Amino acid sequence: MPDHVLLVMTSAPNADSARQIARALVDARLAACVNILSPCQSIYRWQGAVEEAAEVPLAIKTTAAHYTAVEAAIRLAHPYELPEIVAVPVERGLPGYLAWVAEETQPPRTED
């Protein structure tokens, strides 16, 4: 059975930052796919004040085995002091898609 699939969410301050985070995760095989979503407006409390900011959400498809490395890679590439990083377990999904996520997050096979 493939490793448990996770949907990890984060938000970047702009499209360039979102693209950098997405590319780093997919290039390192820590994510099979990252969807860069349409910009949104976020309203949140930060350091005692209510703030508003335009952000670009990312939906990251990975496995539970890679979560720690995904979190570290996001933190390394993310410009925020405290980025949103939340993971939601995927309880059900198209079996072929879930297997694809597991396969694409494995190291490439080498032929001897």
Rank of each mutant, 00 (worst) to 15 (best):
M1E: 13
P2H: 15
P2A: 09
P2M: 14
V5P: 08
V5Y: 06
L6D: 02
L7I: 13
L7D: 07
V8P: 00
T10Y: 12
S11R: 11
S11I: 09
P13R: 00
N14R: 02
N14Q: 09
A15K: 11
D16L: 13
D16K: 09
S17D: 14
S17H: 13
R19N: 13
I21R: 00
I21P: 03
A22D: 12
A22E: 11
R23V: 15
A28Q: 15
A28T: 15
R29H: 11
R29S: 11
A32C: 12
V34K: 03
I36F: 10
L37P: 09
S38M: 13
S38F: 14
Q41D: 12
Q41A: 11
S42P: 05
Y44M: 00
W46E: 12
Q47Y: 05
Q47N: 10
A49Y: 07
V50I: 07
E51S: 01
E51G: 03
E52F: 02
E52L: 04
A53Y: 00
A53G: 04
A54F: 00
A54G: 03
A54T: 06
E55A: 05
E55P: 01
V56N: 02
P57T: 00
L58M: 00
I60C: 02
K61L: 11
K61Q: 09
T62A: 07
T62I: 02
T62Y: 01
T62D: 03
A64G: 05
H66T: 05
Y67T: 02
T68E: 15
T68D: 15
T68M: 09
A69P: 00
A69S: 04
V70P: 06
E71N: 01
A72R: 10
A73Y: 05
A73E: 13
I74P: 07
R75C: 08
R75V: 12
R75P: 04
L76Y: 06
L76N: 02
A77Y: 12
H78I: 08
P79R: 02
P79A: 05
P79L: 01
E81I: 02
L82Y: 07
L82G: 08
L82H: 14
P83R: 01
E84A: 14
I85K: 00
V86G: 06
A87R: 03
V88K: 08
V88Q: 10
V88C: 15
P89H: 12
P89A: 12
P89R: 09
V90G: 03
V90T: 07
V90K: 05
V90I: 12
R92E: 06
R92K: 10
R92F: 05
L94T: 14
L94N: 14
P95C: 15
P95A: 15
P95F: 14
G96F: 04
Y97S: 10
A99S: 08
A99R: 06
A99G: 05
A102K: 03
E103K: 12
T105A: 09
T105Q: 07
P107H: 01
P107Q: 03
P107R: 06
P108I: 13
E111A: 11
D112T: 15
